[in-house]
Design a protein around this nucleic acid. Structure first.
Length: 200
DNA sequence: AACGACTACAACCGCTCTGCC
DNA sequence: GGGCAGAGCGGTTGTAGTCGT
């Protein structure tokens, strides 16, 4: 009786799975337990948090759930045009450094931005590229020249103001070190857009 | 109503980085 | 300096929901 044997195997698999760590979607009950433990013990030592909460999940999973979903001040829902524009510009500058990009969007998580990029913006960009492909190729040489000129200008300015090396006058990581800034302070954004314009 | 294709997003996985002993 | 554990990151997968036929 093959089907019976298969059923037995499946049942055994289910039982052993129950002994392993829980995977898949989080339940409201799990969320509640996790939030309670974090409120008492803080968001650290995730392995311990998972155990203390009585959750049959790995610490990593708990951290992810907290960071992307349960943390206070998480902004959920539609990404505004302004935010989208910001993501596009930051991605142009930084590439797929989602956590850095997320750091400039209060309430947004790296995971959310990554998902948004993969499902919305990457397609938008592909479409744009297809549309402007031929035109872009034509103007490419002229544009490269413009960029080189702009970089050269920045370099000259840098050396005249006492910059040590001949590279562009700002370091991306330094530029995006926001640890001392209020995330809602828009001064950085103006600075960023100014620099961005130079390379456009 | 049924079904397949597509989309959006939550969650997992593997890897690297960092701090501690 | 080396090993280990915890934390963090980016890529990828799984799946529920939506839409078109």
């Amino acid at each position: 009786m093959a089907p019976l044997k298969e059923e037995t195997i499946k049942m055994e698999e289910n039982v052993s799975r129950k002994r392993e760590v829980n995977k898949g979607a989080w339940t409201a009950e799990e969320d509640r337990k996790l939030a309670e433990v974090i409120a008492v013990h803080g968001a650290k030592r995730w392995k311990t948090v998972a155990i203390k909460a009585g959750l049959n999940r790995c610490g990593k999973s708990c951290r992810l759930r907290w960071m992307n979903y349960l943390r206070p001040n998480i902004k959920r829902g539609n990404i505004s045009d302004q935010e989208e524009d910001l993501i596009l510009r930051l991605h142009k500058l930084l590439g797929n450094r989602w956590s850095l990009i997320a750091g400039r969007l209060p309430g947004r998580t790296d995971n959310e931005i990554k998902n948004y990029w993969n499902s919305h913006l990457s397609k938008k960009i592909n479409q744009k590229e297809k549309q402007s492909g031929a035109a872009a190729r034509q103007g490419c040489k002229a544009q490269k020249r413009q960029v080189e000129n702009a970089k050269e200008e920045v370099r000259e300015e840098n050396t005249s103001t006492g910059g040590e090396d001949s590279n562009i006058s700002f370091d991306v990581d330094e530029f995006l070190n926001f640890s001392n800034e209020d995330p809602l302070n828009l001064d950085w954004m103006n600075r960023f857009f100014e620099v961005d314009e130079v390379f456009n």
